[in-house]
Design a protein around this nucleic acid. Sequence first.
DNA 1: TCGTCAAATATACACTGTATATATATCGAC
DNA 2: GTCGATATATATACAGTGTATATTTGACGA
Lengths: 222, 222
Amino acid sequence: MPSSTQSDKRRTLTTSKIIEAALSIANTQGIEALSMRKLAAALNVTAMSIYNHVANKEDLLSLMLDNVVSDFELPDEDGPWKEMLRRRAHSMRQTFLRHPWAPTLLISTITNGAHTMRDANATLGCLINAGFSYAAADWARNAIDSHTFGYTMQELNFPVEPTEYRAAADHYLPEISKNDYPYLHGATKALINGDYDGVTQFDFGLGLILSGLAPDQAPDQR
Amino acid sequence: MPSSTQSDKRRTLTTSKIIEAALSIANTQGIEALSMRKLAAALNVTAMSIYNHVANKEDLLSLMLDNVVSDFELPDEDGPWKEMLRRRAHSMRQTFLRHPWAPTLLISTITNGAHTMRDANATLGCLINAGFSYAAADWARNAIDSHTFGYTMQELNFPVEPTEYRAAADHYLPEISKNDYPYLHGATKALINGDYDGVTQFDFGLGLILSGLAPDQAPDQR
DNA sequence: TCGTCAAATATACACTGTATATATATCGAC
DNA sequence: GTCGATATATATACAGTGTATATTTGACGA
């Protein structure tokens, strides 16, 4: 007796519901907890049902990643390039902080999602409209993205939460022999006693790059 | 009848042999091909034997990573800091090109291997001896490493081999709609027609950072 | 009312890391 | 030389993974 009391099942699964549930699992339980069976369970469905909407797990991950990229602030192609690129970089970092599993996958996966392409197009367009050659724009974007990915991934991997730096001192410092690694020991101690402000430190490196960039320099090649 | 013709077995397995074999598999067949059973087979041994020398797979990966890090050129703590750090960064990139699986793991794993600690200590020491404060040295190293990891990971993930750029043109360009993504289309075409020199491009971004760094600037914090 | 067709399911397979229990080879002490 | 003791290799097993294949089910157009 099929009644409407339950969920009246059938035909309720969609690709976007799958992606949504997958993102939720990855964000709350970590990417390693995202298995097809767990995802299916969260959707009240069998694992194999998912394969009616998604080619395989790799495909699912690509869809998730493009969804993440859609949170990047799209540069205005006619706006001031430094500010546009700085804002985009900061929004990338913020996005990665919300989806800590994403950068590793994003940098080691080929994605042609619509949002990813739009982001690349707008970023390059902003530079090109500012007078950068195609090659120079590519180099500039590459340098900025390298910093954004590299910095955020290091930040996400840092073993201690900013709020418990001091508490970690007694725990980690003894492992760093003062004799064998004097500088590392000292730096760790200084670091733990200081404040941590990820935005400022990220912007510091970003600023080094942006300051050095200009439409005319960069590659000697055609 | 035990004879010495074969291998006279027993007691031949060592941690370094395991690491060596694991590195070989990861470098030739990719990190995803490295399973405990395959590794054991390469060593003419059972999977569980490995666990007498290694706590678990994560531990094995840490040992492999520290081995990779040992290839980084150690900065001379009293040498000229810009040149020292530039050389270290380039050697990191070269090392990653030989071990394409390494950077992703290295940046997403906490490692306290001796080589990793020595590298961190020497790098910080070089900056500190050049007049950087502990905090400034940390920020500088962070900016340089961000670029090194980020750039090399993007480079390793680039879908086309430098030698076959032109051949890839017909293959990839059609997927990038000239109407929807004009700048990306143009940049891709330009990129494919140009030469690729990873060293030069890497050094370009690195140079931006090194040019901006100085012992006195950087963090306002203590 | 009946195909038709898409979507959900059931089952199965090869493969993963590794816990547990067992066998065996080597070495120090007598 | 003989005998534990100890370290190391093995055998077996289990829960979990992605997914190929075959089957069932439900909704819709004729």
